[in-house]
Amino acid sequence: MRIREFTEADWPGVWPIVRDVVRAGETFTYDPRMTAEQAYEIWVESAPGLTVVAVEDDRLLGTAKMGPNRPGPGSHVSTASFMVAADVRGRGVGTALCRYAVDWARRHGYAGMQFNAVAESNERAVALYQRHGFAVVGTVPGAFAHPALGRVGLHVMYHEF
C-alpha cells in the first residue's frame, strides 16, 4: 500500500468511500444526504492542508485530509480525518493514514493534532488513535445521533507533539 497526494482524477474513487461512510451515519457528523459536490468541498483540502489517498495495485483503499484545526490563533494545532473502504477495514489502512497525517503535521511544525468529533461508539477508531498517542480530553454527552445506538458522546481527542 502506498499513500500519495490526492489528484482530481482520484475523486471518482474517493467519492464512493466518502458517500458510503457518510450515509452509514455511524462515524461522521456529515449530512448523510450530502451530494458529491458538497462532499468534495468538505473533503478536498487546499493549502496549507492536504488530502491524500491510500492505494494498492491502482485500487483506492482509503483517504485522509489534514490541515490546521482552526484559523488564526488556533492554526498551530492540526487536525485530520480518515475514511477507509468497507471491504478493506481491519487491514491497516486507517493506521497507515493516521501515521501519515501525524508525520505530516510534525514535519509542518504543528504543536499537536486535535480530533474534534470522534463518536465514542467508534471504538476501533478511538483505540487506533490512542495507540498513536491521542488522549480523550473531553466528551460532549449525547452529541452524536447514531442510527442504531441513539445519542452517544463525541470525544475531543488530542496528541501533543
Rank of each mutant, 00 (worst) to 15 (best):
S121Q: 08
V21G: 06
V52E: 07
G133H: 10
F6N: 14
V84R: 00
D31K: 04
G90E: 15
E45R: 07
A24D: 15
R91Y: 12
A117G: 11
V140L: 15
V136K: 08
L154M: 04
G153C: 03
E41L: 15
Y40L: 08
H159G: 09
T35E: 03
V102T: 05
R4T: 15
R151I: 04
N116H: 01
F161T: 15
T95Y: 01
R124N: 11
A135M: 14
A54N: 01
R124D: 11
Y158C: 08
V77S: 00
E56V: 03
T139A: 11
V21S: 11
P32D: 02
F144G: 01
H132M: 14
V156R: 05
M83Q: 01
P68R: 05
I17C: 15
V53F: 04
F28P: 06
V18G: 13
A47V: 12
V52A: 10
F115E: 14
R91V: 10
G72P: 04
I42Y: 13
M66A: 05
L128I: 09
R2D: 14
R89L: 09
P48T: 11
A135R: 15
A111L: 10
T7R: 08
D57R: 03
E41K: 13
G90D: 13
S75P: 03
A125M: 04
A148K: 14
R70A: 11
I42H: 14
G94C: 02
A85F: 05
V136E: 11
E123H: 11
P71N: 04
L97V: 07
H159N: 13
E120Y: 09
A127L: 12
S81M: 03
A80W: 02
Q38C: 12
L149H: 08
